[in-house]
């Protein structure tokens, strides 16, 4: 039984491979919807490219369906089998990145970067060498502040640190 289970696990899960073509089909359908009433100049390229994409995806689906029918592949909707070897650390790292994007406006570039760097480095390394990581986070965010905000005067979100430093520089 366990041998059978292992064997089954080796088989590729076609559902994972379907994500990109499904995304392509959904997006193309939406795109077509936006150009229905448009002049021909807006349509010609998309209709050519989109139709070819539909055609290739259909071929791909047929091929995969065939593979599942012949028991050469599986089709299962299970989180860890959808994207092979997607681990908890990776999921956590992606969530931290989303958090960084959401909080960068609230906290300002520098503080958000320090928090993001420190928390993600700690997550990826299970909390070892915390002092080094903290120092490195501050240094890298500092380099970012000097290069992006001071030298290139980029309009990055500003928060407590930027405003305090600005007052200080004045």
């Amino acid at each position: 039984m366990s041998e059978k289970k292992t064997q089954k696990n080796i088989k590729p899960n076609v559902l994972g491979e379907m994500i990109i073509p499904l995304f392509g089909i959904l997006f193309t359908s939406y795109y077509f919807f936006t150009i229905i009433d448009s002049p021909w100049t807006a349509q010609v390229n998309a209709f050519i490219v989109g139709s070819i994409l539909f055609l290739i995806c259909t071929l791909f689906f047929i091929r995969k369906f065939h593979a599942v029918r012949l028991n050469r592949a599986v089709c299962m909707l299970k989180y860890d089998r959808l994207l092979p070897a997607m681990r908890t650390r990776q999921t956590g790292f992606i969530i931290l990145t989303i958090g960084y994007l959401l909080f960068v406006e609230l906290l300002g570039y520098t503080l958000a970067t320090i928090i993001f760097l420190f928390s993600s480095m700690s997550l990826l390394d299970s909390g070892r060498k915390m002092a080094t990581k903290f120092a490195l986070s501050i240094i890298m965010a500092g380099v970012g502040y000097v290069v992006f905000i001071l030298l290139f005067e980029t309009r990055l979100p500003e928060g407590f640190i930027e405003k305090t430093l600005q007052e200080g520089l004045k």
Binding site: E17, I20, P21, F23, G24, F27, T28, Y31, A46, V49, G50, I52, L53, I56, C57, L59, F60, R63
Partner: peptide, 12 residues
């Protein structure tokens, strides 16, 4: 076929 799908998704 997967290369073409990727490329045409990119083109779209």
């Amino acid at each position: 076929i997967k290369g073409l799908i990727a490329g045409f998704v990119g083109l779209m």
